[in-house]
């Protein structure tokens, strides 16, 4: 185990979140069941009072888990000097590759779920009758399972990473000629795949920003209409596909250019050598997730009193998406032109 301020914080947060997620998950599930069975307004008011503490504690736990994602990478970054052969986070991930990969996959999912849940929570709090309480409690109990797994995973990883472990770093993995991020686009676009990938990514990102902008300009968003959910679902899928294109084009085209290392394709090295790229990634993630949150809010938030407030909230969410996606694209373009 490598002990430093960050790893101790991660272990502490992990232990605290695991305990509270376990308690909060079970409590919210039982409350959800009672909420479903309750029929009178008095019963519901009583349940709302009981859920107050659970929601308050779980809101804090979920906020901590939102911060946990960047903290996780910050902690791995702090281990680089203690792992023999590691020159970036990639080397640290090779100490326990299976567990680390699992956590790296889980954390964005949790971030997305928590963000979506928070929007529902805010929407519900703006109403007088709490029409989303049942759904909120059910989703909270589901998210708690993920949080529990993630927290235990964090603790296990921190314990299992031993100082002085000898690993190979990114150069021997991310730069090999038969890497899938190269062979897949190369098989589609030929040897000049990098240029095609760059054009497709820019076109896709601009199209996404344009579509989000179109949704914002659409007057009928204020009223309920049958196509809205379909359009949001399509946008979500498109944003997801754009996310895959983003990662692919970053690895193959933009990261080597931004690092001034034309043959090196490691994104962890990019964060290390070009720290402002982290801002770009953060904006991209928030923008893409906002598109998804628009869809999940439409999916779960359209009930009772909340339906009337929904269009206004959706507008705000898509404003965020437009905003973040445009800003991330702008940083990328400036880098691309400057480098």
């Amino acid at each position: 185990m490598i002990l430093n301020a960050l790893s101790i914080t991660l272990i502490f947060i992990g232990a605290l979140c695991a305990l509270l997620a376990f308690w909060g998950g079970i409590s919210s599930f039982f409350l959800y069941q009672k909420w479903r069975r309750s029929s009178t307004p008095e019963e519901r008011t009583s349940l709302e009072d009981r859920s107050y503490l659970i929601l308050l504690i779980m809101v804090i736990v979920l906020l901590i888990r939102l911060i946990n994602w960047p903290l996780f990478y910050g902690t791995l970054q702090s281990f680089i000097h203690d792992i023999e052969g590691a020159m970036c986070i990639f080397g640290v991930t090779q100490v326990r590759p299976g567990l680390t990969r699992f956590l790296e996959f889980l954390k964005p999912i949790i971030f997305f779920l928590i963000g979506g849940w928070f929007i529902l929570h805010i929407l519900d709090r703006a109403t007088k009758t709490s029409p989303l309480m049942g759904r909120k409690l059910l989703l909270l109990s589901l998210i708690s399972i993920f949080v529990l797994i993630d927290s235990i995973g964090d603790i296990l990883l921190m314990i299992e990473i031993a100082p002085g472990t000898l690993v190979s770093c990114c150069t021997t993995v991310t730069d090999i000629s038969n890497r899938p991020t190269r062979t897949t686009p190369e098989s589609l676009f030929g040897p000049q795949y990098a240029q095609s990938l760059k054009i497709i990514y820019f076109a896709s990102h601009l199209l996404l920003v344009g579509m989000v902008g179109f949704v914002l300009k659409f007057k009928k968003l204020e009223k309920t209409f049958s196509w809205r959910r379909g359009i949001f679902a399509f946008l979500f899928l498109f944003a997801f596909a754009n996310g895959i294109l983003f990662v692919l084009s970053q690895i193959e085209v933009f990261a080597p250019a931004m690092m001034h290392l034309p043959f090196h394709h490691c994104l962890y090295c990019l964060w290390q050598y070009v720290p402002d790229s982290i801002v770009m990634y953060l904006l991209f993630i928030l923008g893409t997730f906002s598109v998804g949150w628009g869809f999940t809010t439409e999916l779960f938030g359209k009930i009772g009193e909340a339906s009337d407030l929904l269009p206004n909230y959706l507008r705000k969410i898509y404003w965020f998406a437009f905003f973040f996606l445009s800003a991330s694209l702008l940083i990328l373009i400036i880098h691309w032109l400057a480098d």
């Binding site: 402002d276 801002v279 905003f323 940083i331 373009i333 400036i334 480098d339």
Partner: peptide, 18 residues
């Protein structure tokens, strides 16, 4: 807010010319 973001983006992007 958007303008502020653009300025921040430009400033951070220009750091690329290191």
């Amino acid at each position: 807010l958007f303008i502020i973001f653009v300025i921040i983006s430009l400033a951070s992007g220009c750091k690329g010319e290191r």
